[in-house]
Computed example of a mutant assay.
Amino acid sequence: MTRNTILPGMALILLLAGIALYLAGLPAFSHLGLSALTLAIVGGMLLGNTLYPHIAERSHHGVAFGKQQLLRLGIILYGCRLTLQDIAKVGTSGLIIDLLVLSSTFALSIWLGTRLFGLDKKSAILIGAGSSICGAAAVLATEPVVRGSAEKVAVAVATVVVFGTASMFLYPLLYPLALHWFGGDAHAFGVYTGSTVHEVAQVVAAARAASPDAESTAVIVKMIRVMLLAPFLIGLSAWMARTEPRHGHARSITVPWFAVLFVLMTALHSLPFFPRQFDHVLLFIDNLLLAMAMGALGLTTHVSALRRAGVKPLLLAGLLFVYLIVGGALINLAVSHLAML
């Protein structure tokens, strides 16, 4: 693949990402918690089902490059959002809560998706990853491991958008009740929000109703969930190698190299000599890369395929959403109680 063959597609997804980043910064969209990733995939789908088929022959190499290589680079740079010092601030209990919420939500997604709704395993995995870890970014990061189609990825992202957006309006309404659950502790509400809401932007919007302390705690707890993405992907690869043999032979374990580099980037970002003055530049580049990957995904997603997926993925994500609210609260209460013993 030469540079000339990828340039048209790269220019197209760069334009989509730039528009998405601009719109995400406008109050009308930011107050709704619509991130650049969400706007990029929506814009990509609108273009992909109208004008893009006419230019797909010239652009598809660059679009494919965006979905694959730029996505992995974006996941690596995601490590610049967290430090090991941040993890220490919320303590062992915050990490345990995140682990329990993640593992139980994902396991529930596999069981409900394949047993109750009859979905294929890849769809259940993608929806479970988005609900249990970090929304659209987790769905994108999981796709190379499960090798899901663009349509399955788009459906999973759509469920995250629907219920993640709902959480931003529901959690502030739950705040008085949640304070009662947690003994009036706004910090505990922040841990609860960070461990159960889908995306980072949605966590910020949902926790802002409480206090600055709750908001900052929620973001840290959420970013710990993001960091768990790396071991999750490695474990998922090992599980799929054991459960999905190929052509009569065991499937080899594929360690997602970008997940390992994501952890290394987090460790590097934690070092005292890391030039923090570049954080905002790195985060902008990261948002741009992920938005380009989402735009590329949208361009290759056909509305007809989403229609064929039906209502079952949405019902699965809805049940996971209810579990995150209720089951997540019970996990938070149980761990907090045990920590005080």
Rank of each mutant, 00 (worst) to 15 (best):
P272K: 07
A154P: 03
L174F: 12
S211C: 14
P144Q: 01
P231G: 02
H269T: 10
A158H: 02
A218I: 05
G248K: 11
A267R: 03
P176Q: 12
P256F: 00
R246K: 15
T243Y: 07
G248W: 08
L233D: 02
I220P: 05
V255F: 04
I253S: 08
G164C: 12
D185Q: 15
S237E: 04
K152H: 09
P231N: 07
V160I: 13
A154E: 02
E199H: 08
L179Y: 12
V160A: 11
A154F: 00
V161N: 04
P272M: 09
A178T: 12
A201Q: 09
V219M: 09
A230L: 03
A214K: 03
L174K: 07
L177D: 11
F163M: 08
H198D: 12
V200Q: 01
V191T: 14
V263F: 08
I220N: 04
A209V: 12
A150V: 12
K222P: 01
A238F: 08
A158N: 05
T266L: 08
A178H: 04
A241G: 14
Y171M: 12
A209S: 15
A156Q: 05
G190H: 02
L229H: 00
D213C: 12
A188P: 02
R208T: 13
M223H: 00
Y192A: 07
G248P: 06
V162Q: 01
G184C: 13
H180Y: 13
A206S: 14
P245D: 02
L177W: 15
V260M: 09
M240G: 05
D213M: 13
V197H: 06
F273H: 14
A166I: 15
L170H: 06
V146C: 04
I220E: 06
F189S: 03
A205L: 14
W239Y: 15
H180G: 14
A214R: 00
L229K: 05
W181V: 15
P176D: 14
P256A: 11
P176K: 12
A218D: 05
A214E: 02
A250C: 13
H180K: 13
A238W: 08
A214Y: 03
